[in-house]
């Protein structure tokens, strides 16, 4: 028993001293997986950029089950990892319970607000970014019919859809927006085949620009849109490179910046709510050499103008999640 105590005490001292030295940050990916070419991958690229630039290392885990959320948080916290960054709103409840148990560890959660003194909550105004790409979709459309393909049918994705529709209608009030959700289970985040089918169906209904906010499913949407010769809009990461000249733009959500900032700040990370919107370039649209020919100067000027107005607060884009309703269909 005493031997055991001595061992435990030594272990505690060791882990304390390890914590006092440069603590290793940890990154927890949600069930979608690290290489979803979208949300989680953006987080990974931010972490990787930090590691490459600073020579630091970080721990990471891809979750396999719901029960592992709490487990991963506790194991990393007990291991002395700091800060612990997690991607996805699904961590909200668990973090709310775990954070108070480890007051000396800092946590950062993306896409959710958790009210605890040692948590940084990073939220994005996706409706603003979606509004901007909605405007571009409407301007690029010749049939005045555009499409939206969401991943799993949850409020967050309806928030994307609602911002997008508002943007479309701001340019062409008479335009039609066809909306589809890929599915009702988490599998909908990673079903490119279904994404492809939905794309074909929307094309047959006349859509000539389709916005995919569907994680890995979007890969199928972008592929089919490119094959069928219509335009598409990527999401989260800049996906323009995937089909050069076929992707109108991408609604970028700079999850990578959020992760990079958190790792850069390290144990001194500022806590509280951290909103990333159009104003502070947390969301936006992607321009690069791959879509330069698709976006005219007029289009870009109109969108930049709207972005400035959103940034200054002159233009308010309705947030679906504020009242669970969208003013336009």
């Amino acid at each position: 028993m005493t031997l055991m105590h001595k061992f435990l005490a030594t272990a505690a001292v060791l882990s304390l001293s390890a914590g006092a030295a440069a603590a290793e940050p940890a990154l927890i990916f949600d069930l979608g997986g690290k290489f979803d070419k979208s949300f989680n991958e953006a987080a990974f690229s931010g972490a990787k950029r930090w590691a490459d630039e600073t020579g630091g290392t970080f721990r990471e885990i891809e979750l396999q089950s719901e029960a592992q959320r709490e487990q991963a948080l506790r194991r990393f916290a007990e291991n002395g990892n700091d800060p612990i960054i997690m991607t996805g709103f699904a961590f909200g409840n668990v973090l709310g319970e775990v954070a108070p148990d480890y007051p000396d560890t800092k946590f950062a959660i993306i896409d959710m607000v958790v009210d605890a003194p040692n948590v940084r909550s990073v939220v994005f105004n996706e409706h603003e970014g979606s509004y901007l790409v909605g405007m571009m979709a409407a301007m690029a459309s010749e049939s005045d019919t555009v499409g939206f393909i969401g991943g799993m049918d949850i409020p967050l994705i309806r928030k994307f859809a609602c911002g997008y529709v508002q943007g479309v209608k701001a340019v062409k009030p008479e335009a039609t927006v066809i909306q589809n959700m890929t599915g009702t289970t988490p599998a909908a985040w990673n079903d490119p085949v279904k994404g492809s089918e939905l794309t074909k169906s929307q094309i047959s209904q006349g859509a000539d620009v389709i916005y995919a906010a569907a994680g890995g499913t979007g890969v199928g949407v972008l592929q089919t849109a490119a094959d069928e010769g219509i335009l598409s809009i990527g999401v989260d990461s800049n996906q323009n490179y995937m089909h050069p000249g076929k992707i109108l733009t991408s609604m970028t959500k700079r999850v990578d910046n959020a992760v990079y900032d958190a790792m850069e700040a390290g144990t001194d990370i500022e806590t509280g709510i951290y909103v990333m919107g159009v104003g502070n370039e947390g969301v936006g649209y992607a321009m690069d050499e791959f879509n330069a020919d698709l976006v005219s100067a007029d289009m870009q000027a109109a969108v930049d103008d709207a972005a400035a107005k959103i940034g200054s607060g002159e233009l308010m884009v309705h947030d679906y999640m504020s009242d669970n309703a969208c003013p336009v269909e």
Binding site: G92, M112, I154
Partner: peptide, 9 residues
Amino acid sequence: RPVGAMDPA
């Protein structure tokens, strides 16, 4: 789902 909650729970 409680109003305003993000999670479908």
